[in-house]
């Protein structure tokens, strides 16, 4: 059951509405496993165009304190990769919003790469993003992912050299994830500088849309980035809202951010 180009279509729809797309990250099973489905549905209904479903890992070395804590909490509560796929299957029965599975490499290796791809596709996943699998780190593995029905979303950092950035952009599926700053995930009071220029360059080099993430938590930041990019990615702010104000609080944040994305 392949869902043809669902991510691209979601970005196209946002563009047709003259706004940036909203990509929302949620740690699977957070704030509590029994609320995991409600959190995804709430994000979708409040305006998320694409959902990144985070598979918790014991050693989330690219994540800041918010997502670290969420990961540890849900692992403690029994969430693992098969559980996250089951959550996705449930979600897919209720909503059509494209979903990118967001994971570190080890849980997928442990599960088995080919087994994972078929289980993820079967559960209704559209894309895959692996934090610690940079381009060309493992050509054999990357070929398996790239030749699967899943879009392999690639990350580009401010430190990525120009030629490599173009190369990554050309190999990214679904969208390109531009990391707005060096550092781990998490809310910041100010946006990084130089985003506009980088994004413009990447858009020229890429056949897929360019979305910007890391450090976006407020409507002002969302609005500023929405003027430069095809999409914005919100992770820690949503996880933080879920943790502190529950599913309703998360939904409220997403609705606010979604309202800030118009290009006027």
């Amino acid at each position: 059951m392949s869902r043809d180009r669902a991510i691209a279509k979601a970005f196209d729809r946002a563009a047709a509405e003259k706004r940036a797309a909203l990509v929302v990250y949620a740690t699977a099973g957070y704030p509590r496993p029994e609320e995991g489905l409600a959190a995804l549905v709430a994000a979708a209904d409040a305006g998320a165009d694409v959902i990144e479903l985070g598979v918790p890992f014991s050693d989330p070395l690219a994540d800041g304190p918010t997502i670290q804590k969420a990961s540890f909490d849900v692992i403690e509560a029994g969430v693992d990769l098969p559980w996250a796929l089951e959550l996705l299957r449930e979600f897919r029965r209720q909503r059509d919003t494209p979903v990118v599975i967001f994971s570190y490499l080890n849980p997928i290796l442990h599960f088995g790469v080919e087994r994972f791809i078929s289980a993820a596709v079967d559960a209704g996943a559209d894309g895959l993003l692996i934090t610690d699998l940079p381009v060309d780190a493992d050509p054999e593995l990357e070929t398996l992912f790239e030749s699967s029905p899943l879009d392999l979303v690639r990350l580009i950092a401010p430190t990525t050299l120009r030629e490599r950035a173009r190369y990554i952009a050309s190999r990214s599926g679904g969208f390109v994830y531009y990391i707005s700053r060096t550092g781990v995930t998490g809310a910041r009071s100010e946006l990084a500088t130089g985003i506009e220029e980088k994004v413009a360059e990447l858009r020229a080099a890429s056949e897929v849309p360019v979305a910007v993430g890391f450090g976006i938590s407020t409507a002002e930041q969302a609005a500023a980035v929405a003027r430069m990019a095809d999409g914005i990615i919100v992770g820690s702010a949503f996880v933080d809202a879920l943790g502190k104000r529950g599913v309703a609080g998360g939904a409220e944040l997403i609705a606010t951010l979604r309202g800030a994305l118009g290009r006027g």
């Binding site: 610690d132 940079p134 780190a137 690639r154 990350l155 950092a157 401010p158 430190t159 990525t160 550092g183």
Partner: peptide, 12 residues
Amino acid sequence: GGRFVPETLISA
């Protein structure tokens, strides 16, 4: 072996 790290570290 290999280099299974976030993209941010590749240039370093």
